[in-house]
């Protein structure tokens, strides 16, 4: 128990729009151990960002946590006041966002923006904070940092801005780093550099990471465990091995097929999953993937499947096909052996 940094238990988050309650997160549970990196994967709209903003308690009106617990070092963040959260944000839990082009304030220098969090949480003077900011810029491999620290965001490239965001996030040595699609907006070579940087810094600073992405290919290198989300629910979670080589959920299998194979020679086309995610204003009563699932059975439409666990209990999948009474489907059994991925 003591080695759990973050435990999310049956978290539910909704947006109370004029059309009604959009149930963006409908009861998810997962945990992050100290020093561990986990991946949260799912298509756009599956609830990844809402999950991370719920943990940070940065949901904007009309978003609200409606149930569950978020235990951070054993303390429930759900009941914390904004004032309590201010001491945690940027200090114990830090976050980097998808779009580095818009995530930095255009009118302040990079140095000021890094120093700001340091001054706030570490009670350092302006000068000391700027020295620390310079160290951070060196740490994230910004060339010519003494000069660059005085630059404004528009003088930085996209990749450099994301490095600066990482510098801000890690400046107070947080215990948990939430990275919400940190490489999605960057081109492929820069993506790899940023991921490498995050990986090496996590090891160096002993920070746990929640890496959020819609690309299963991205997490393989960085994370030890993966949570697969869809329609505001966790479809499957397990170790990297479980998810890549023994996927049990048709949605995970679909995601695996849609991984871009950059490193491989074979010019294989991406196979996106046909169809669109469910309407969270009126979420389906059964399996959220029912409408798009090629193996869907009658029960899938009416009853939400429970989690079926592997023998060690660490690989969990929400799919009726794993029920002992489910009819055997040959293709599914074959895919369960794992989809070959190029890397």
């Amino acid at each position: 128990m003591s080695d759990k940094l973050l435990e999310v238990k049956d978290l539910r988050t909704s947006f109370f729009t004029h059309l009604g309650e959009v149930k963006a997160i409908r009861g998810i549970s997962f945990d992050v151990e100290k020093g561990e990196s986990i991946g949260i994967v799912g298509e756009s709209g599956s609830g990844k960002s809402v999950t991370s903003l719920s943990i940070m308690k940065l949901l904007l009106y009309p978003g609200k946590i409606v149930g569950g617990e978020i235990l951070f070092n054993g303390e429930d963040l759900v009941n914390k006041t904004n004032k309590d959260m201010m001491a945690i944000r940027g200090n114990e839990i830090a976050m980097i966002f998808q779009d580095p082009m818009t995530s930095l304030n255009p009118v302040y220098t990079i140095g000021d923006q890094i120093a700001e969090a340091i001054m706030k949480h570490q009670k350092l003077s302006r000068k000391e904070a700027h020295e620390r900011a310079l160290e951070m810029l060196k740490l994230v491999n910004i060339p010519d940092p003494e000069k660059r620290i005085h630059n404004f965001p528009h003088e930085f490239s996209g990749g450099m801005r994301q490095r600066a965001m990482i510098a801000i996030a890690l400046s107070c040595q947080p215990q948990l780093l939430i990275a919400d699609e940190p490489t999605t907006a960057l081109d492929v070579t820069i993506q790899a550099q940023i991921l490498d940087l995050m990986k090496s810094l996590n090891a160096k600073l002993d920070t746990s990471t929640m890496l959020i992405t819609h690309d299963l290919g991205v997490v393989a290198d960085v994370c030890s465990r993966v949570v697969v989300m869809y329609g505001g629910l966790i479809m499957e979670k397990g170790s990297i091995r479980d998810i890549y080589y023994e996927p049990r959920h048709p949605y995970t299998m679909g995601l695996l097929k849609s991984i871009p194979k950059v490193a491989s020679d074979e010019k294989q086309r991406l196979i996106p999953i046909p169809g669109t995610p469910p309407d969270l204003l009126n979420p389906p009563t059964g399996c959220p993937f029912y409408a798009r699932c090629e193996y869907a059975m009658r029960i899938c439409n009416t009853q939400q499947p429970p989690y079926f666990k592997s023998e060690d209990g660490k690989h969990e999948s929400m799919c009726w096909l794993l029920h002992p009474d489910a009819p055997k489907n040959e293709k599914y059994e074959l895919l369960k052996g794992g989809v070959k991925i190029g890397k």
Binding site: T102, S103, N105
Partner: peptide, 26 residues
Amino acid sequence: QQDYIRTARAKGLSEGVVIIKHALRN
């Protein structure tokens, strides 16, 4: 609504600092 305001909040800054320093100047 801008992303950098969310970044400022994510740093743990108070709402006053977020508005006066980060929002108003822009």
